[in-house]
């Protein structure tokens, strides 16, 4: 149930994360993978990417979206997610804090080369957009039998 937490929270990973954090602080950012069209950390919505032998799983943490207003497209190996989140105006109210993202956003994600653009699906649940991109069979690691 907490697979996500354990996948990203394991003991060894924690050490990696510490290292990573130090690198982040040193370099200011870290990108997945580097490319000119790709925005760095701090862009809305934040995302996590995980790999399985069959799929690339992308999680975008974007609460309060209308899935009908989301635009998801794949061109070559670039996945683009665009949308808008409007924080409703409050007439005559006094604002104390406005930390939540308000406005239009666009995130471009570079997918590994083995992704099949025909097999990209997305679902939105509890404020998390999960995009699953299928990988081509040929790219999967094959066990070689010793004769």
């Amino acid at each position: 149930m907490f697979g996500f937490a354990s996948a990203f929270d394991g003991g060894l990973l924690r050490e990696f994360r510490r290292l990573e954090q130090e690198m982040d602080e040193m370099l200011g950012q870290r990108s997945w993978p580097a490319g000119v069209r790709l925005a760095s950390r701090g862009t809305y919505p934040p995302m996590n990417v995980g790999l399985t032998p069959e799929n690339v799983e992308i999680y975008l943490f974007a609460a309060g979206l209308d899935p009908a207003q989301l635009e998801i497209s794949v061109e070559k190996n670039l996945l683009t997610v665009a949308g808008e989140r409007k924080v409703p105006e409050q007439k005559g109210a006094t604002w104390y804090r406005q930390e939540r993202f308000d406005g239009a956003f666009r995130r471009v994600i570079s997918l590994p080369d083995d992704v099949d653009p025909e097999r990209v699906t997305a679902k939105y649940r509890d404020g998390v957009l999960q995009i699953t991109a299928g990988r081509r069979q040929t790219a999967r690691a094959r066990q070689i039998q010793i004769q």
Binding site: G3, F4, A7, F8, L13, W32, R41, P46, M47, N48, V49, G50, L51, T52, N55, E57, Y59, F61
Partner: peptide
């Protein structure tokens, strides 16, 4: 999250 996922990149 599918079992055996390899976390490649995480902002969260």
């Amino acid at each position: 999250v599918p079992a055996g996922i390899d976390p490649a990149y995480a902002e969260v």
